[in-house]
Write a protein that binds this DNA or RNA. Structure first.
Lengths: 343, 343
DNA sequence: GTTGGCACTCAATACAAGAGAGTGCTAATA
DNA sequence: TATTAGCACTCTCTTGTATTGAGTGCCAAC
């Protein structure tokens, strides 16, 4: 549907805009990208491409700005050609493994936190990392801590070292001994298995046996469900400060957009899910997807492995981000994470 | 050192600036605050006060702007006169106890998180809450989870439901049974007592008994020390989004200042400590304290109790914040928290 | 299909003029 | 001696105007 030359113009306009931040005019295109043609020719093409919704102008005599559609074409073209890795995997891995202040041993949390910081630093965008499908990760240990009166603290440890905790309360006072007994029993059943697999077993367990057990079991299950399902992912992010430095974010509104995007998490969670399902890179460009917050932002997600667990890492940045570099960085980090896991 | 009239002028200028955001001129002062005198008189006084470093001007013919010194005088005057509570304690408490989505039972974390949100919403500034002196809170339970090979996950539960976790590794493979045995022993010693009190005991424990125990004990202690001492406080904050709406924060730089202030935590931690020691309200106004980040920000901290534990709650906002309202809000929330704790 | 030329549009910048707010200073007043 | 009125001065802010430069659209010629 696009001629070779039209494609070239689209790519040139997007590239130029990403690099310079200025709308590209016909003259620039002929001088830098498509030589041997006069600006007038390019103008005619550009006018057509504008009709086809690849470009827009801020005012009658501004250069052309790429629309989301144009970015999409650009990203597709990046994906097809081979990218040079932006940095040696070994180097990245070294950085990933380096001891840093507080936590020396790499729990999954530690790794993902580092990863987000690395992404943020290398791209000047917001880095995110997500562990999702928590019910699909083996349970390592479940603990109950008696917190006085009828309140119980539930601690769930998943493989890879993810720790979750929540409170629930029982309708009556519960002896610490009984609680301990319950903990022992439930660990025998659940330890080493996935929540989605033991759920049903535990449920039937709750229906048989001592009545007191039933009550705990039911409350505990509700809370576990709450911890592992209703919020079936865990977010890490960093670099919200960095983006303030970018020229794209001189407007307060745009900063707000990103912050609220991070705060909501719901929209991101959907994308993470998709990314996991398809097990491949996902790029959301601006308003392609409807919510208002992300009108001017792009999101890139890539599946990864951390401490043997599936995870997703990604970048949130302005529409006008350097997609090529961003994707290279993500790919590099994914490779480094894999390398580290195999050690 | 200030005459009654001078004090009145300082207060008027600060008040006017807080309310309107505009520098106050001599005419405004005579019309709204100090009646019966001509602007010229006020001008003379203001000129003197400028020499005394209470005011400054952005240019020769702007009105007077209050310096940190003037704000200090203003805050002192607020503290002396009685404040009307800005909202019924009962109402605040209700809001504090209301079930909200994820966590229904009020763990200390839950309470403090809610508190920060309330502060943010009511003042349009950043709300913070801190539990500090973690080594001064009774330990409820210590758990060790064997994470494969020689890596151990340490979980510490403090009274009030604070949960901390960290990893440490041992020089050799450790049998899960031995680890469990160790956990039982250490809980017997530490449970119900404060870390600062059992530290010494555990240390001597490590020196006697089985050699294998010694190694775990030493590593575990190092990690506990790390969790509870080297980062001897836990921060909650919210509302970073809200401040973007304030007219004071139209400049990116100011937003960065607040964000980096939150990120560093170190400076805030010092203030929290002081606040706890003196057990009274602490107000830091702009550059009174040197670091550059807070040049244009004020911080208010107030001691509070949450779930029986000492905590500190506070507000971070622009120099030109509404101190009276801010302090009222904090006091109101502290009262509501106390009420809730006594239930 | 491509190109050169030309008129047109619009943003950005600079400059000038005037209004408005506020000060500082001085001389007069109570 | 403290206060005041008056006036000149300074600086910001707004408005209006002119200029420049980048870029387009269109048309006629190649």
């Amino acid at each position: 549907m696009l001629t070779e030359r039209q494609l070239g113009i689209v790519l040139a306009v997007v590239y130029e805009f990403i690099k310079s931040g200025e709308p590209a005019g016909s003259r620039t295109i002929t001088k830098k990208y498509i030589k041997g043609l006069s600006p007038a020719t390019i103008r005619n093409e550009m006018s057509d491409l504008e009709d086809m919704d690849f470009f827009y102008q801020t005012h009658t005599s501004s250069g052309r700005l790429p629309t989301a559609k144009a970015y999409r074409v650009y990203v597709d073209s990046i994906m097809q050609r081979s990218r040079t890795p932006f940095m040696e995997t070994a180097e990245l891995e070294k950085e990933l493994s380096e001891p840093s202040g507080s936590r020396k041993i790499g729990s999954i949390e530690d790794v993902l936190e580092r990863v987000t910081r690395m992404i943020a630093r290398l791209t000047n965008c917001v880095g995110v990392a997500v562990v999702s499908a928590l019910d699909d990760i083996e349970i390592q240990r479940i603990d109950f801590v008696h917190m006085g009166s009828s309140s119980v603290l539930l601690i769930v440890v998943l493989r890879g070292g993810l720790v979750y905790h929540g409170h629930f309360s029982l309708p009556y006072r519960m002896s610490p001994n009984l609680l301990e007994e319950f903990a022992r029993r439930i660990n025998t059943i659940a330890s080493g298995r996935k929540w989605k697999d033991v759920r049903q077993v535990l449920y039937s367990y709750a229906l048989s046996g001592l009545e007191e057990m039933e009550v705990i079991c039911e409350s505990a299950m509700k809370e576990m469900e709450n911890l592992l399902i209703s919020k079936n992912y865990r977010f890490f992010s960093s670099g919200a400060q960095q983006i303030l430095k970018l020229p794209d974010f001189q407007e307060i509104g745009k900063i707000q957009a990103i912050l609220s995007l991070l705060e909501e998490e719901k929209y991101l969670a959907d994308m993470v899910l998709q990314c996991r399902m398809e097990n491949s890179l996902k790029v959301s460009i601006g308003n392609e997807s409807s919510p208002d917050h992300i009108k001017d932002n792009s999101i890139i997600f890539l599946p990864a492995k951390a401490c043997g667990q599936q995870a997703v890492i990604g970048i949130i940045g302005p529409l006008r981000m350097d997609y090529e570099r961003s994707i290279s960085v993500l790919e590099g980090i994914v490779a480094a994470m894999e390398e580290k896991d195999n050690e």
